[in-house]
Write a protein that binds this DNA or RNA. Structure first.
Lengths: 340, 340
DNA sequence: TTGAAAGCGCTAACAC
DNA sequence: GTGTTAGCGCTTTCAA
């Protein structure tokens, strides 16, 4: 591979000159020289060494995407359709901005911090971080960061995030159930933190608003670990007899449960109604077609990347914490029942 | 951020010494010094500058994953579940080997070559390359490369690839259909190149073996472009009346078609049988459960990464072109019919 | 309009 | 055991 220095020698000019024309600073160079240099660059198939450039400029053209996988949420992080879609969308936007993306997946926040510092990434997009992680990061990493879908407690106030109206979305879909005559409704999730917690809150609000009694019984925990899932599904099958509708924290679980119940002979929505959250491909594939809460992942990625680049360019942000809206999409998994 | 040089000054030793203990070459350093250095590293929270290291060592610790998206195959490359799964699996294996992965997606092979040269990646995994691309790559990129799922014509002989028994898989599932009394069978794909071509060949072989007439009519082209898909699906619906079974080149299409037909009132498998290829999550979600050809993506990723690292370490490969096996998985989308 | 030279942080050959 | 030093390829300041 040719270097600038070699080309400089060939042409009998200085490296500065070559560098200048590479960077289009041609007003400082005579037309004649520009032409000769460009021709040589072409002929030699010169490719800049990014490492050298990064070192000299103390930057990297890398955007880090750091993900702390929720332990055992679904099986593997790599199989999580939401993360995969978000990741590839972000990569897409990053690349279109002339940067490269590097993925840092680790359960250890220190490892993440070390890696991104080592690579000297120009900015960071983060998912799955806790309040403690955020504090740590702010302390050790001094470049732009934007979080995705994060809820931090009040120990940290100043951070940039792009989230979703989890409360509203789940409220709306629950309300839709209620409007269809449902009163005995359960919420199903595999934990009660972050998004899932706020979705639960939305669910809860809707019931309370309609003066429907709510207790611990209305929250069903699904256990997604490989060896527990079967039993958990069976439990849900049994519990489901006490409800006329189920609101699931994600389409993934909605579809899993739907299929489990249907395979057991339960009719949906005749015997029980189900709704999900996300409106991903699962919701579109399953039959009956799943009614669910729609979120726009591509938009989420886009906003995150845009915010990050604004910060990198020292522009001011119109808002630190963007909450993207949700819409409910009505399909065929809910039955209208006579209020009892 | 602290540098080696700074630490050397603080301790009054040379950078070599620091560098040595960082790299565990402690046999050349006195215990005393090692201890002092380690303590300082700890205290300063020293993080190596990878760019500098890469520059000095002329390597990068980066494995490039280069993908040339098949124009308009599905909507966006980023939504392709197969690519996403493969990508994240590869990333996983690469990271476990202490390397980093960088993604290079472009329809322009020159752009890809430039990028990976620029970053000085230590090895390359490639998908979606044509014979011409391969020739170009071999000419311009002198480091280890392994291709995935590639079929090249005989202009190129020496290359490392990990593929799949596309012919066998499609042959077996077609045979299964035939054994169930089906004679009027169509193959559906959105193109007739690469994998899809070889899958078609397997399909064809199975029919010929059983002395079933085959003509152009047996190949149905599905048009996946957004504005054509609807019409294409309608065409397939009409064409399907002439067949008792459909073998689809992917689960994605199998499910799409299944749902389209079912939404039109067609009963599956009673009215028509369908099988797919891949055995991905779609096949598991859809009802009736899809009978299909199973492939192990995780294994494919693993083999590709292993081959690459062997090449990087100058070990010899037991085989250049690995063809992973397929198995057929029988579920409920095929009906046994009385031969006519 | 052009060039010399220092320096980015790290490695490694070699000398002490 | 430890230090000196010359790069790696590129950018950039400053002088000519």
């Amino acid at each position: 591979m040719v270097t600038i220095k070699q080309m400089a020698e060939m042409l009998g000019v200085s490296t500065t000159t070559i560098s200048n024309v590479i960077h289009g600073k041609t007003k400082e160079v005579s037309k004649e020289t520009v032409k000769r240099v460009n021709e040589l660059i072409e002929a030699c198939e010169y490719v800049p060494n990014i490492n050298a450039r990064n070192l000299a400029q103390n930057k990297s053209k890398i955007i880090g995407l750091a993900i702390k996988p929720r332990q055992s949420k679904y099986k593997k992080t790599t199989k999580d359709i939401f993360i995969n879609e978000l990741t590839s969308d972000i990569e897409d936007y990053v690349r279109k901005n002339g940067y490269y993306m590097m993925l840092y997946i680790s359960e250890d926040i220190y490892e993440i911090i070390n890696s991104v510092s080592s690579w000297n990434v120009d900015g960071l997009i983060l998912m799955g971080m806790s309040t403690d992680d955020c504090i740590m990061l702010k302390q050790k990493f001094k470049k732009p960061m934007v979080f995705i879908d994060s809820y931090f407690d009040n120990r940290v106030v100043d951070y940039v995030n792009v989230g979703l109206d989890d409360v509203g979305g789940c409220h709306d879909i629950t309300k839709y159930l209620i409007e269809n005559g449902h009163k005995k409704i359960a919420y199903i999730a595999d934990n009660c933190e972050g998004c899932d917690k706020y979705r639960y809150l939305g669910f809860r609000n809707a019931l309370i608003e309609s003066k429907i009694m709510i207790s611990d019984q209305n929250f069903i925990l699904i256990q997604s670990e490989r060896n527990k899932l079967g039993a958990s599904l069976e439990d849900i099958f049994n519990a489901s007899k006490h409800f006329t509708a189920l609101v699931c924290a994600s389409d993934y679980y909605a579809v899993l449960i739907m299929n489990y119940l249907m395979d057991k002979g339960v009719k949906i929505p005749e015997d029980i109604s189900i709704v999900g959250f996300d409106d991903n491909i699962y919701a579109q594939i399953v039959r009956p077609h799943l009614s669910t809460v729609h979120q726009d992942i591509s938009e989420k990625s886009k906003v995150a990347v845009e915010k990050l680049f604004k910060m990198i360019e020292n522009e001011s942000l119109s808002e630190k914490n963007t909450i993207l809206p949700t819409t409910i999409v009505i399909r065929n998994s809910v039955k209208k029942i006579a209020g009892k």
